[in-house]
């Protein structure tokens, strides 16, 4: 009987000691993490386009933290979904087509001689990337434009175009080589090259 009691006693003491150590460690090594909403917000592309059904990326981040699906952001595309899935430890699902499709990076351009200066686009732009005053010609600050499309619809004279951000010699980069596996399926010697004719 005594041995049983002794064993129990020892176990109790041990668990108290280890509990104490763990508790201390938690207090001592506590890491102040970003609130989850901030972390989610940091992963969203900040295009502020509202295609997710929320007025901006942050509201969507809040919605995600409240359980909304992570595949409602077309500008972010699959890469963002993957990042969100990694962060929230859920499965990455394909983009929800109802909210739009992933497009190339674009930027709004106002055909300036047609602009009537109604300021409607300014009000629509979520990042204040349009410059102009009432009854004056308006223009888009290309560097600030997120390509969200929101200014196109309100324009009464349809003078805003979304143009693809083209590839120039400055932002061009090499493609990823096709690798062994892809290449071995159509095994040709010219794999990492492209034949171009003049």
């Amino acid at each position: 009987m005594f041995t049983v009691l002794l064993a129990i006693g020892i176990l109790v003491v041990l668990s108290l000691i280890f509990g104490g150590i763990l508790g201390y460690a938690k207090v001592r090594f506590h890491v102040e993490g970003d609130p989850i909403v901030d972390q989610i917000d940091a992963l969203l592309p900040q295009t502020q386009c509202g295609q997710c059904g929320h007025p901006g990326c942050r509201p969507y981040a809040e919605a995600i933290s409240n359980g909304e699906a992570i595949n409602h952001c077309p500008p972010g595309g699959q890469a963002t979904i993957q990042a969100l899935a990694d962060l929230l430890d859920v499965e990455a699902i394909p983009l929800d087509g109802d909210h739009g499709t992933e497009t190339a990076q674009r930027v709004a351009v106002i055909r300036e001689d047609e602009c009537i200066g109604c300021t409607k686009c300014i009000q629509a732009c979520p990042v204040d990337a349009i410059l102009g005053a009432a009854k004056q010609m308006h223009t888009v600050i290309a560097d600030e434009c997120t390509g969200c499309d929101l200014c196109v619809e309100p324009c009464p004279v349809d003078c805003i175009d979304m143009v693809d951000v083209g590839i120039t010699a400055k932002n061009w980069s090499w493609d990823k080589p096709q690798g062994v596996a892809a290449q071995s399926l159509n095994i040709i010697a010219t794999d990492r090259s492209t034949e171009v004719s003049q």
Binding site: P45, T47, C57, R58, P126, V127
Partner: peptide, 15 residues
């Protein structure tokens, strides 16, 4: 892209 999206976020919040 990170720099740009940060900027967009700032401007959005400022607005």
């Amino acid at each position: 892209a990170a720099v740009k999206s940060d900027l967009a976020k700032q401007r959005f919040e400022a607005r």
